[in-house]
Design a protein around this nucleic acid. Sequence first.
DNA 1: TGAGTGATCGTA
DNA 2: ACGATCACTCAC
Length: 197
Amino acid sequence: MQKILSQTFFDRDPVTVCRELLGKFLVIKKKWVMQKYIITEVEAYNGEEDEACHARHGLTKRNAPMYSTPGCRYVYLVYGMYYMLNIVTGPGNHPSAILIRWVRDEGFGTRWKGLNGPGKVTKELWIDKQFNGKRADEKTGLRVEESGIKVSKIQTAPRIGIDYASDKRRNKHWRFFIWLDSYTDMFISRKPKKYKI
DNA sequence: TGAGTGATCGTA
DNA sequence: ACGATCACTCAC
């Protein structure tokens, strides 16, 4: 059974959507195969009033997707090298998005693959600017699906890489993540050794 | 801990 | 038109 999450799902504030996005499938077509990944870490960027958000100076060419339809992709290049994958949220045209910071490879046994990082996600998924502003569709195959995975222990922490924002915004726990136990395949609160907070 | 990398944005 | 900056990663 596959249920693709609709625009309605994303048409809410990003903090709410973050919590529900954990444990869902991120699905993308690689070559001729549909690859599934479990979303394990995300961050919320919430409106012009959020000094950490790209929308903090209003509408620009780069952040335009954030002002468009919830559910579409916001992909940009950072440090000249790494693409960041975001999913636009709401409510309505309120400029907000969720950064996909880490995923787990569903078809890769029970082993963790290296360290975390959003630049590695886009490299693994072959995401680049061609996805920017696009909605989930059959052509690219990039979409989010219901997984049936029950997530009970969601961890939170301050967002990463936003030192330019004020203390008030920096300290907000708008990073959400889950860990998966290597042996039981259950989402747990204990952190693997390699995981850096 | 610091170099690499280039598009983007604010300022002018 | 220019220069600083950047939602990062990897090697040292």
